[in-house]
Design a protein around this nucleic acid. Sequence first.
RNA 1: GCACCCGUAGCUCAGCGGAUAGAGCAGUGCCCUUCUAAGGCAAAGGUCGCAGGUUCAAUUCCUGCCGGGUGCGCCA
Length: 586
Amino acid sequence: MIFSDKIKQTLIKTAENHFQINITNPNLDLYKGEKFGHYSTSISYEIAKKVGKKPSDVAAILIDEIDSNSEIGIFFSRIENINGFINFYLRDEFLFNLIKEQVEKESFGKGNLLLNKKVLVEYTDPNPFKLFHIGHFMTNALGESIFRLIGNQGATAVNVCYQGDVGIHIAKTIYGLLYFIAEKNYSLEDFLNFNTAITIEELGKAYVYGSKKYEEENEKIKIQDLNSLIFTISQEIPEKEGVQVVNQYRKSKHFEYEDIKKIYFKGRKDSLIYFEEIYQKLGTKFQDYFFESITGEIGTKVVKESPLFIESEGAVIWDGKEFGHNVQVLINSYGIPTYGGKEIGLNLQKKNKYSPDLSIVCTAKEQEFYFKDLIEIFKQLGFSQETIHLAHGELRLKSGKMSSRTGEVVTLEGIVSEIKEHIVVNFSSKKNQNFLESIAEKIAISSLKYLILKNSIGSNIIYDPEKITDLNGNTGSYLQYTYARCQSLLKKGGIFNLKTNYSITEVERDMFVNFFMFPEITKKAAIEYSPSTLATYLFETAKKFNQYYNENKILEEDTEVKDLRLFICLINSYILKMGIDLLGME
RNA sequence: GCACCCGUAGCUCAGCGGAUAGAGCAGUGCCCUUCUAAGGCAAAGGUCGCAGGUUCAAUUCCUGCCGGGUGCGCCA
């Protein structure tokens, strides 16, 4: 059990024994500087109000009891009563002991809050036939970190990706491709033989073209017609084996089944290869994939069979207005399942395949209301698993928004290469060019992730390519650098003794207490779905180390002192490494 | 129009019921023949949008107002 929970438990028990009062969740603050204790509580105020005593008198009784009669009393060097606030101070030996033991076992920072729970985390969700843009990256950064934080609490975490291999975006893209082929930019045969990179490039251009055409009424009808055909074709994909096909799509008036099928299969396959390369660069390895072509069928079946949904203007809708929700169109008037219809199928598919205790979905913030409705629909349908929607904000330039609606997007690749250039230029005086280029991409991706995760979930992020890898501020690179510095010292320091007794200064004690909070922080970050809590802690930890480093020579002559300082390096290094990893960075 | 989110230092943001409101950036003054200075120190900067209310205690909870964002049926 984590130490703060032990204190809380003791407080609850003591309050019950001495005041016959039931306090369910006492306030307990984590370390915020030596003067307020290593842990502190204002529980006395809560009790005092109920029993009609002075807070400081209540505190005195509690302290006396914890000191002499509780299991945790021996871990404190002193417990203070400041006007009723109770401040706990941990014994130095206890700090050393616990940290040393757990660091050696590599269990330090790991928790068991979600032991025996199965949690599904869905994130990234790019759409085949479209480019991987910065929004997908933000979803990935958020989701990957949540996935890791939850897994770190003992849960069986399953990370999954949901890919839109059917939908109007594909019809638009294929429509564009057909135009390019008709204009003899290349033949159908040429297209089918393109390598992945070229296919992706052409898909991007075709999507822009198709999106523009979709704005014209007569073109829109054709694209919708093509869309129906693509839904029909998608029933032939290999992943669809065993899935019941319930929907009857309209026959196409304008397009040739076989030609479209070739284009669709080629584009789909290359898109998935292209995404897989990106996931690898991002450090994500999905355990499972879901496809809209499949969830659409499952969702359609549910929607058609459930009395919750009604027909309206040729579409099938869910009307949530009576209970404070909106209207959601689940099957459109072309007979095609919309995002919502597919999402119902997805939720059911997740349930059938994994029966998770909790299902987390990460998307952009614009979909917040939409998910509120969907989660209500899931409840009304009786889907048992709890679903939580986590939303990230937008990446913006100082000058304003980045993306535009015309289909032209800021790709991940574009941003990463911009950051890479800065890295190579800024650091070239320190390292040779080849080395820099070999690590620049990793630094770029990590620093972008950190930029996103250091802010609380859902807030918009200001992106400044000049500042993002600055080593003199709160950046991912600063953490990486500090870790590298520690590693260098440990390497030079050689073998040293890990002890459980050191004589330490105030500054060193502050570092140890801060180290001690690491498991508290990883737990808090997981429970609150808050990577930023961890990010902030890591930055403070790195900063404390760099301050110490500046004032103290680590590789001292004196063995005693050197051993202590290397011990500090070791823990600092351990925490930074694990923390950086939990944020999904390298 | 309705619903939800946000207004904290010049800028970007933490904190979200407790004890003196914290960081980073920018700006000011310092510290390099360096255990990676690819770093650190010091000072400066705030009626926590405004007005009420609840509480022993409010930046944090509630109500109203002002200012900004997002979403409101066939995109995802």
